[in-house]
Amino acid sequence: MQALMGADERAFRTHVERSDFEIGQAKGKWRLLRINWPTADIAISARDGTEWGFKFLLDGYPAQLPNGRPCDIETGVPLSGDKWPKGSGRFAAVFNPGWNSGALYLPCDRLALPGHDHWLTQLPELQWPPARGIIHYVEILHELLASFAYQPPVRLAA
Rank of each mutant, 00 (worst) to 15 (best):
A103P: 06
L104R: 08
V16Q: 08
A40F: 04
W119Q: 06
K83C: 09
A40W: 08
L106A: 13
L58Q: 06
I35Q: 02
W52E: 00
R13M: 11
P66W: 10
K27P: 00
D20F: 10
E74R: 15
F95R: 12
Y61Q: 11
A112T: 09
A93E: 13
P38S: 10
R18A: 15
C71G: 05
F21I: 10
K27M: 10
K29E: 14
F95C: 09
P62Q: 09
S88H: 11
S101Y: 02
A26S: 15
A63L: 07
L106R: 14
A11R: 07
A26F: 09
Y61S: 06
I35R: 01
G87Q: 10
D8K: 00
R110H: 01
D41T: 08
P78E: 00
D41I: 00
G76F: 05
L113I: 15
T75L: 06
L104C: 11
A11V: 04
K86C: 11
P85H: 05
W30C: 00
Y61L: 09
T121M: 08
G28M: 03
Y105A: 11
N36R: 14
Q122H: 05
L4F: 10
Y61F: 15
W84E: 01
L32T: 08
V16S: 05
C71D: 03
P38M: 08
I44W: 01
L65W: 04
L57I: 02
P66A: 10
A112V: 07
P62S: 14
L57M: 03
W37Q: 07
G24Y: 02
V94I: 11
L104F: 07
S101H: 04
K29W: 12
G87W: 09
R110Q: 06
E22M: 12
N67T: 13
D72P: 07
I73Q: 14
P78L: 03
